[in-house]
Design a protein around this nucleic acid. Structure first.
Length: 1028
RNA sequence: GGGCAAUUAGCUCAGUUGGUUAGAGCGUCUGGUUUACACCCAGAAGGUCAGCGGUUCGAGCCCGUUAUUGCCCACCA
């Protein structure tokens, strides 16, 4: 603790550096908080005196890598709330943790494995791969926690959770078991994006589309029976001819004419309401369909419908297979040839068609992307080669009708950059009907509130689709599905083994002819059924399946415990908008399902951070940013304040970032080109520096670039301003002991400026609290920034300087300075924790009764009795007057050191108000007052400033340029006359009868004031003109 | 294709329920080392609130429309 005491210089002078040093403060106070365990909630500690519980769970960052600036935003916003709640007296608990992020983490480790050792996961096997991922996880978890600490996050680190740890695993098994028990889990097929290179399924967001020029092949399928006269072929079109090897039918719409008419009507309707821009395209589309309809197209399709109903069968070219022609609504008469080939195993729509029509499903692909034995002579060929061979073979047997060139969007895997192959895979699903409905209701009835409210719609729309949730993933990294299969056991054997156990459920899966056994135990032994073998499911659960439980699994669910009762439901969930559905919605339904209670009271969706071009940040664009580089340049407090200051209701945060050369400090503009480079040469000093992308050793030893950004600079300057205001106060007080009792005694001076600052402080306290409680961060920051800078520093501190030199006035001034500083520091602490703690500890030197840390100090309480809007208005007169005099000095080029004399014509109550403040005009504007009141008249040679309700005369004998002065006044007259004219015309119209009285009154008063000002200006001109 | 936003000073952004003459920071210009702070102080210039139309006594704000930009979701024989 010795390192936190203030070094005493020779006398009373406390040594305080002129610039706030963020690095030192971060180190010192981060450790101090941790040593005192200020953010650690003791097990089962429920304070009788507290306001109750307030809990926040962190959106667990993925262990794929280090945190980026988006995390900095997300966590700053959470920390602000939790720190405020803690100070307000809640038992505030912020639970940290990380997410195992199934596919992303496995992919990153697999890629590293291949790059470093040229090994694939199949070379090392499941256990070895999982062991490696755990190592990776350990490394990044500790890195992430370190980063969170460096951002000042006040989490209870002793409760750090991981979505794959034993506590979460238990919750996952219980959730699954309960779903299984209620028959909400079933098995179905789902199309997966198969990466044939990495041999894994990838999620939709890991797929990118690339426009490539492909072909549209028209293929003839010969009719084999019944042998009708015509037609001899059914024509189908496809961009993927090789998939025909998996075809099990060709479909035609049951009523092509009606279907087409409907398309035409719909399209015509849309053209009516469409914007001018899209009309031509739609019209073109409509014309083409009409043209098609007027051809013999419909007649052919109708004929095919008849044939299909008559049991028509087709020969699948290049194979021995004979497939049916069927009728199904999926076939769209207006598309392609009007007939569609059905490949149930490789297309989700075709899969549905296949199920409806009881078609076989033939998978023609191996996992490595080659064709399997179902493809007959094409087996073992790669897709690309198979396609070429299929096309040429079709050509050879004269079944290729024609080929068109066509631009297609081809899906590629983001991981391997190879084309994605869609194929159907058996999958476990959760039935969403009732679960989704409960989550809809919870938000619909206001039980859970979403901020900003507009996101409610997206949430409800997504859930309303009630699409079943595919929960299996063909991965090794994750919670393994707690299902064991046994094909050969008899019902009797199963019952003997399990019917007396309430932690085991089982049922017979008719379709797959196997027993499905679900266990709450972590593992069922292979021989749990005597003489039979149990085989566990290979797949793991979707990552969201475990993150959906995060709010209650982290609190120990399913075990009943006091902490779960106390802290659940949690307070607010703060996250970004792209996981509102995937994560937030699922948390609501899982929370409701598991606990019967909502998981949180409120959801706050924060803005997205964009780059200088207004585009989202991503690894592939290279426009991401490591918060460490911001902290290095500006400090943590500036990072946090800058982010919070930018967090508005409906605007994303654009960060205009540039590099700062670490060698010479020059600004290097960040461009789309240079931001992806590992190193950059400074154009000024010609030395190289590294960026965050440096990978090889040679680059890594270069000095690292820093990040330049205006917002963070503004924030850093503000922290420094606060620091210096504190420095001024502390230096002024000079180590005298001042405790809260003496402060309270002195808060009743009766002076305008004292009443003003205390009134403003209370107003700001109230408003900031309200704003933060409704997640209006930018507004709260603006209030604090403006109060601290423009009111406390620019006015109160400046005013009080002259009082400090007077021994009689000094004690009250000091007491108020200390008091305002204390409150300001408390209000700012949630946002800028380090600088405020640094100041707080020095305030504690003066008052030992203060809390050991500002982070547990009592939140400022609004004292309504000192809020006096009248006082605030009166002080504005002082401010306006001071500004007018300063402006006058500047515009007349009066040297700063030259004292001027002024007098003010105003009503006597204003005079009474301002007279005691004469000394401040002297100290703040070097202007000496020489008379106040109604009887004041202008000196002979003076500049006049006509203000509302008063005139300021500045005696300028010897200084004034009469001609220029008259010109200035004439300009002023013209301006005032302009306003008068517009107001007079306003008051002459319907305005006076239709606008509310108080608005009209206000306008009338304003007009009267303007007329008075005009008269003053005219008088002044006259007086000066007489002097000429 | 569906939905949600945004467009305000050279730049980055505020702007509450429609109500005097639309605000701030940065940058620019003028002046300044004063009992904290040059990461500072005092002051100034700078705007057809994207375009068009409407409602209203009154529109940056409400309605319609066009343009541009971004984000989310869905789909593509």
């Amino acid at each position: 603790m010795s390192d936190i005491s203030i070094t005493n210089d020779n006398d009373d002078n406390i040594e305080l550096s002129k610039q706030y040093d963020p690095a030192a403060a971060q180190l010192r106070w981060g450790k101090y908080w941790e040593d005192l365990q200020l953010f650690q909630v003791k097990p089962n500690a429920i304070h009788a005196s507290s306001k109750g519980a307030y809990c926040v769970v962190i959106p667990p960052p993925n262990v794929t890598g280090a945190l980026h600036i988006g995390h900095a935003l997300n966590n700053t916003l959470q920390d602000i709330i939790i720190r405020m709640k803690r100070m307000q007296g809640y038992d505030a608990l912020w639970i940290p943790g990380v997410d195992h992020a199934g596919i992303a983490t496995q992919a990153v480790v697999e890629r590293r494995l291949f790059e470093d050792e040229k090994l694939t996961r199949h070379d090392i096997g499941r256990d070895a791969l999982v062991a490696r991922i755990w190592k990776w996880k350990d490394k990044y978890q500790s890195r992430i926690i370190t980063q969170l600490k460096s951002m000042g996050c006040s989490c209870d680190w002793s409760r750090t959770r991981f979505t794959l740890d034993e506590i979460c695993a238990k919750a996952v098994r219980h959730f699954f078991f309960r779903l299984f028990e209620q028959k909400l889990i079933y098995r179905g097929k789902r199309l997966v994006n198969w990466d044939t290179y990495l041999q894994t399924a990838v999620s939709d967001d890991e797929v990118f589309h690339e426009t490539v020029v492909g072909n549209f092949w028209y293929i003839e399928y010969p009719v084999v029976e019944p042998k009708a006269d015509e037609p001899e072929f059914v024509l189908v079109a496809t961009t993927r001819p090789e998939t025909m090897l998996g075809d099990t039918a060709v479909a035609v719409h049951p009523d092509p004419e009606a279907a087409m008419d409907k398309v035409i009507v719909d399209l015509a309707k849309r053209i009516e309401t469409a914007g001018e821009k899209e009309k031509p395209d739609l019209q073109k589309e409509l014309d083409e369909i009409k043209k098609l309809k007027s051809s013999d197209h419909i007649a052919i399709l109708k004929k095919l419908v008849q044939m299909a109903k008559a049991g028509c069968r087709l020969k699948l070219p290049l194979t021995d297979r004979v497939i049916p022609l069927i009728v199904d609504g999926w076939a769209k008469p207006e598309k392609g040839t009007g007939c569609v080939k059905i490949t149930p195993a490789h297309d989700p729509n075709d899969y549905e068609v296949g199920k409806r029509n009881d078609l076989p499903m033939i998978n023609i692909l191996n996992k490595d992307g080659t064709l399997n034995s179902e493809a007959g002579q094409y087996a073992d060929l790669k897709i690309k080669d198979a396609r070429a061979k299929v096309v040429s073979d079709l050509e050879a047997c004269d079944l290729l009708h024609s080929v068109e060139e066509r631009v297609i969007e081809l899906a590629h895997s983001d991981r391997s950059k190879t084309p994605i192959e869609p194929f159907l895979h058996d999958q476990w699903f959760v039935k969403m009907e009732s679960l989704a409905q409960s989550a809809i209701d919870t938000v619909q009835n206001g039980e859970v509130k979403i901020f900003p409210e507009r996101y409610k719609k997206g949430y409800i729309d997504w859930l309303s689709e009630k699409r079943d949730w595919p929960i299996g993933r063909q991965l090794w990294w994750g919670h393994r599905i707690p299902i064991w299969n046994c094909k050969d056991a008899t019902k009797n054997e199963i019952e003997t083994a399990f019917s007396n156990r309430n932690d085991i459920l089982f049922n017979w899966d008719e379709e797959n002819e196997t027993w499905r056994i679900c266990s709450l135990e972590e593992d069922l032994p292979k021989d749990a059924i005597k003489g039979r073998e149990l085989v566990q499911e290979e797949d793991v659960l979707d990552t969201w399946f475990s993150s959906a439980l995060w709010t209650h699994s982290t609190l120990g669910w399913p075990d009943a415990n006091a902490e779960l009762d106390y802290y659940y439901p949690t307070g607010v969930l703060i996250t970004n908008r792209d996981i509102l559905t995937l994560w937030v919605a699922r948390m609501v339904l899982a929370g409701k399902f598991n606990t019967g209670k909502k998981p949180f009271d409120e959801v706050y969706i924060h803005p997205k951070i964009l780059d200088k071009y207004g585009e989202g940040m991503s690894k592939s664009k290279g426009n991401g940013i490591d918060p460490v580089t911001v902290i290095a340049k500006y400090g943590t407090d500036a990072l946090r304040f800058g982010l919070a200051f930018s967090t508005t209701e409906n605007q994303d945060i654009r960060l205009v970032l540039d590099f700062a050369c670490p060698e010479c400090g020059a600004t290097v503009e960040q461009t789309k080109k240079n931001r992806v480079l590992p190193k950059i040469q400074c154009p000024k000093c010609k030395k190289d520096f590294r960026t965050q992308w440096a990978e090889n050793e040679e680059d890594k030893i270069l000095p690292e670039s820093m990040t330049i950004n205006e917002r963070f600079e503004v924030a850093r300057n503000f922290c420094n301003k606060l620091w210096n205001a504190a420095r001024f106060v502390l230096l002024s007080v000079g180590g005298k002991k001042i405790n809260s009792v003496t402060i309270n005694e002195k808060l009743n001076s009766g002076l305008l400026e004292d009443k003003w600052i205390l009134s403003r402080l209370s107003t700001v306290t109230r408003n900031v609290t309200q704003m933060l409680e409704s997640y209006k961060y930018a507004e709260a920051m603006r209030l604090l920034h403006d109060f601290a800078w423009d009111e406390f520093c620019s006015f109160y501190v400046e005013i009080v300087k002259s009082r400090l030199s007077n021994n009689e006035q000094r004690p009250v001034a000091e007491a108020i300075l200390i008091y305002v500083l204390q409150v300001l520091v408390k209000l700012l602490h949630p946002v800028v924790p380090f600088v405020t703690e640094e100041i707080w500890q020095r305030l504690r030197e003066l008052d030992s009764e203060l809390a050991v840390s500002v982070s547990i100090a009592e939140w400022a309480v609004v004292d309504e009795s000192v809020i006096d809007l009248n006082i605030e208005e009166q002080f504005k007169i002082f401010q306006e007057l001071l500004r007018a005099i300063r402006d006058m000095r500047a515009s007349r080029n009066i040297p700063p050191k030259e004292e001027i004399t002024f007098s003010v014509r105003c009503n006597n109550s204003v005079a009474k108000l301002l007279k005691p403040m004469e000394q401040y005009f002297l100290s703040m504007a070097h202007a000496k007052a020489n008379g106040w009141g109604e009887s004041v008249i202008a000196p002979n040679v003076s500049a006049t400033i006509p203000l509302v309700g008063m005139d300021v005369y500045v005696d300028l004998s010897g200084l004034i340029d009469v001609v220029a002065e008259v010109a200035k006044l004439e300009k002023e007259v013209a301006k005032i006359e302009g306003f008068i004219k517009s107001k007079e015309s306003k008051l002459a119209g319907d305005f006076i009868t239709k606008a509310p009285t108080h608005v009209v009154e206000k306008e009338r008063q304003s007009l009267a004031d303007l007329k008075e000002q005009l008269q003053s200006a005219l008088n002044a001109i006259k007086k000066l003109s007489d002097k000429k």
